[in-house]
Amino acid sequence: MNNENPILYQVIENKTITWFKNSNEYLVLENTTADILKRLSKDISVNEIAKALSKKLNVPLEKTVDFILDLEKRFFVPKKTIKPDIVNDYRDIKIPKEFEFKKYYKINNVVFRVNFSNEFELSLVHPKFAHLETTKTGFQNEFIVFNNNGYIFLHVDKDFIGAWNKKEIHYFQGKFSMQLIQKIHKKAENEWMGVFHASAVSNGKKSILFLGDSGNGKSTSLALLQANGFTCLADDFVPIDKEKKEVYSFPASISIKRNSLETLLPLYPELENSAEYHFKKLNKVVRYLQPNNNNFFAHLPCNDLVFIKYEKDAKLTCKKISKIDAFQQLVPDSWLSPEIENAQIFLDWFKSLNCYQLTYSVNKEMIHTVSKIFNNDL
């Protein structure tokens, strides 16, 4: 049974985080429930497990049998999938010969050419990377983005990567970014532990991840810290590798929402005349701020997750929070590798982290507090 659906377990605080290979799903379980799954995966009979559980909990045997059978059905009985009669992977779609836009981006000393079939495809990628645009036309890597029959196609260095409909635009953007970091850092997809929807700031020696719901101020806090001697490693898309378990630099701009302009314009006057981009589906209007990072090959360890929140007139508070609470906020918005080795590395890495909740209204106090976290001085 264990070979059919390998499971990993990590006890944190008073719970067990459990990972299922088949679904690449992480669940936070009670320790007793996780122990039952371990026994089932070792092919110990339901009756034997039920008898031990009945005795331990002093409940009727019938109830423990029913409970264990429900767990077995949920986690170990293969789910029926309906396979479509025709599978179309779109590989036979021909790449256009002409493109409306050709952009060249220089990342460190490497030049990427990205071909876009129209302005819509351009708008999905270019604003975040416009600060990297170069006039050099010699290139080492080529990305091709085009539309065919309502689908957005991506090819990288002549390899077909995928096709997405307009409801799946964020998946296309994520895959584009994933392909980009693979080329920048020369690491295949299975060499990454995960990618996190966060902001990553560094002091040159290590990094901190800012997390939180949209609108809580992750990117604004990052921009404030960048203006006060810290470095932006990545915004929105934060990759961590499996070998070093370090945050790797991602060269996209920092996205700044309209309601942050009053705070940031004195520090970044260039935002006054920068273009605004309207994302109707996300109900937000943003401008893009160039990161101050001058080494997009950089990678640094991360020991701290900070769930940050700007709240008007709030007194600054910074306290350690439950790792289980932090885990349940971190995972839903993350891409985590489906490889069993990488899943174990992620669980081990997470267990080692410090997790904080930081709420503030005064920028200077936030900057001072983050400095203390970097210096292990809280």
Rank of each mutant, 00 (worst) to 15 (best):
L225Q: 08
D377S: 14
S117N: 07
N14Y: 08
F210R: 10
N2H: 06
E100T: 06
I7F: 00
N148E: 12
H299I: 04
F296W: 14
L225F: 13
I324Y: 13
P301E: 02
V331S: 09
F237N: 01
L267N: 01
F172W: 04
M1I: 10
S23K: 12
A130P: 00
R91I: 09
N292W: 03
D241C: 09
S219G: 11
Y171A: 14
P84E: 03
C302K: 14
G229E: 05
A343W: 00
P127R: 08
L225Y: 13
K315I: 15
P127V: 12
F297K: 11
S260R: 02
N24R: 08
S255P: 04
G138E: 11
M178Y: 08
E339A: 07
V286E: 02
I367S: 00
L305F: 15
L336S: 11
L71Q: 07
E191P: 02
K205Y: 03
K21S: 08
F237K: 01
T359F: 05
E272D: 10
N216P: 02
D377F: 07
L37G: 07
L336Q: 10
S334C: 13
A314Q: 06
F176C: 05
E62C: 07
F350C: 04
V156P: 00
S253L: 02
S54N: 09
I340P: 04
H278V: 14
E121M: 14
L71E: 04
Q329F: 08
I256S: 01
F350A: 02
E246Y: 12
N303F: 03
P269H: 12
N148Y: 15
M193H: 05
I321G: 11
Q344S: 13
K21T: 04
L40N: 03
N295W: 04
N294G: 00
I161W: 00
S337W: 02
K372M: 07
N273W: 03
G150I: 11
S177D: 14
E270F: 07
V125C: 02
E191G: 09
L37P: 01
Q357E: 15
V125K: 03
D313Q: 12
K102C: 01
N273G: 02
S334I: 10
N295H: 05
K257E: 12
V111Y: 05
N216V: 10
S199C: 14
N216F: 15
Q140S: 06
T220R: 08
I44S: 05
S123A: 13
M366L: 15
L225R: 05
I7A: 06
Q173W: 00
P332T: 07
A200M: 11
P332R: 01
L289E: 05
T33H: 09
I12Q: 03
N14V: 10
I49P: 13
W335G: 04
V362N: 13
N165K: 09
N292H: 06
K206Q: 15
T137V: 15
S371N: 15
S219D: 08
S54G: 10
H278W: 14
L27M: 03
N88Q: 03
C232S: 12
I324T: 15
H126T: 03
I308C: 05
I161T: 01
I36P: 06
H368V: 14
G162F: 13
